[in-house]
Write a protein that binds this DNA or RNA. Sequence first.
RNA 1: GCGCCUGUAGCUCAGCUGGAUAGAGCAACGGACUUCUAAUCCGUAGGCCGCAGGUUCGAAUCCUGCCAGGCGCGCCA
Length: 555
Amino acid sequence: MKNLVKDIVQNAAQKAFDNDMLPSSQMPDMEIEAPKHDSQGDLSTNFAMVSAGIQKMAPRKIAKALIAAMDPVDFIDKVEVAGPGFINFFLRPSAWHPVVDQVLAADERYGASDFGRNEKVQVEFVSANPTGPLHVGHGRGAAVGDAVGNILAFAGFSVSKEYYINDSGRQIKTLGTSVWFRLLEMAGRSIDFPDDCYKGEYIKDLAGRVLAAEGPDFVNLSDDAAIAVCARYAAQQILGDIRNDLASFGVAFDQWFSEQSLYDSGRLQQTITDLKALDLVYEKDGALWFRTSDFGDEKDRVVVRSNAMTTYFASDIAYHQEKYERGFDRVIDVWGADHHGYINRMAASIVALGKKREQFQVILVQLVNLLRGGKPVQMSTRAGEFVTLKDIVDEVGKDAARFMFLSRSYDSGLDFDLEVAKQKSSDNPVYYVQYVHARIAGIWSKAAEQNLVADKDVTRGKNLHLLVEKEEINLIKILAGFPEQVQKSAATCHPHVIFTYLMSLASAFHVYYNRHKVITADSSLSQARLCLVMAVKKVIRNGLALLGVSAPERM
RNA sequence: GCGCCUGUAGCUCAGCUGGAUAGAGCAACGGACUUCUAAUCCGUAGGCCGCAGGUUCGAAUCCUGCCAGGCGCGCCA
C-alpha cells in the first residue's frame, strides 16, 4: 500500500515538473507513513516538506501543485494538504481488502522477506560457563538471542545460533575442586570448604553422583587426579542440565562450540602465531600483549600470561577468527551488560585481524530485577542462593517467561515479577495476545458447526468488499504493517518491536470483537469476517513464533 | 576519574534513522456479559518527555554541558 502511494506521488511530481508546476524533477528522500490521528487520513507523506530546499518553494505550495497533478485513482477517496505541508491520503476500504488475501495466501510466511539478502549471520548467546545452573539473567539473554535469530531468519538472513562452552580453564578446575571437597565431606572428612569454591546445593548433589558412580575407594585418590575426574564429570552433567533447561525454554542451538576444542585442534596456537607474524603483539614483563589500543581499545591486553597460560581473551580471539573462517559475514554476540567493558578489546582484535567493525556486533542485555509481588527476590551467587531459569519456567511457564523477557528493550533494565507472570489475567500480557488466537479458534469452530465455511484452509478472502466497518479497516491496516515491523525489528535487532506490534494488533482485535459479531445472520458477511479474523489469527501466530511463544487454540 | 546503558503519567514502559494534538498497560474512579471465551471492552482522570543551552521551518527524538540511577574499568572468566 505504501509503495502504491509512493508511486502515485512520484508520478505526480514528474507530471508537475513536465507541466512547469514544479521547477525541479529531483525526487527527495520522502517517507510514507500512517499518521497518528484518523482526521489525518490513512497515509501521509512529507514529500512537500523535504522538497522545500530542492524546489525552493513553500511546502504547502508544493503540496498543492502535486495534488493538482495527481491522476484520479479509484481506491483514493480524497487527498488534502494539512499542517506544515503534509499530504494526507484518505483511502476507500477497497484499498485495504487485498491485504487479507495476501495474509491468507502467504500464511506462515506472511511477514517474511528477503531483506537480509541471505547474508550469513551468526548469533551467539547464553554461553554460560558449565559451572552451575542458568539463572534469570541467562534467561533474558536466551530469550533475546533466540528471538533475534528467529527474526533475522524470517527477514531473509541466513542465521546460525551458537552456544560457546567455556569448558577450559580455571573455573572448570574450581568446579572440580568444589565437588571434590563436598565429596570428601560426605565421606566423613573434615574439610575447610574454600571461599572461592562454588557453594550451591547442586555441588553436593553432583558430589553424591560422582561418589555413587566411582565407588567408595574414590576418596583415596590424590587430589589432582580426583579433581580432574570431578571436573570432567560435573561439567558434563551441568552442561546436560543446561541443554535440558534451554530446551524446556524453547531454545534450540544449531551449534555448541567447545572452548577446549580450540586448544585441542591447535587453533589457539595458530592465532598466537598469526598475531606474532603480523607484529600485533609484543612482550613486556614476561607476558605477551596485544596492541589493541592501536585499534580503539583503551589499553593493550595480555594474551599469554607470564606463566605461559593463555588468557580467556586469547581463546576468544581464536574463536571469533574461527567464526569468520566458517563464512559468517556478520557475528552477533549477546552479552550481559556487566561485560560491556569487553566490547572494545574484542572489536579491536577483530579489526586488527582484517575484518570490518560492522561485521561484529554486541547486543548488551541489561540486568533483570527479579521481584515477587513487587518485592525484590534476594539472591546471592556467592552463597549459591539464586532463582534458576528452570525455577522460573516451572513456576510461570515458558510462554509467560519468554514474553516477559521480550516485552522491553534490552537496553533497559527489566523488572520481572513472578506473581505478575504467573497471573492468568489481564495483568499478564502473554494471555492478552494468546487469548486473541484462542478466541478466533473458538469462532472458527462455531462457524464449522454451522457449515459456514467449506474449507478451513482458506487461501484467499471471500466477500471482502463487505468489510467496511471502521474497526475492520483498522485491523487490516495493522495486518498490513506486520512485514515492515519485522524488518524494523531485524534491522535494529530489537525483538520488543514485535512485542509492541502484537500488543497493538491484539488490542485492535479485542475492540473489534466487543463491537461486532463475526458470525451473523448474514452468511456472506460472516464469511468475509471469518476470513478477516483468520488473517489476524495467522499474524498473531507468526509474531508469537518469532518470540518463541506458542499460540494456543484453546485457553 | 574514564566508559556503556537508562531518565517520558502515581508505577512499569513504548515512541528516539527529527514532523502534525506525546501513547499503552497497571493502579484510581464510573460503566458493559440471556451474545462467537468478561484472560475482554467502553468512559473519566492523570505530562515543564531529568535540567540548561545549541542545530532546525520543526526536537521526547540529533549535538554539548550538567544532575540522578544501574553496570563496568585484572597477567579473572
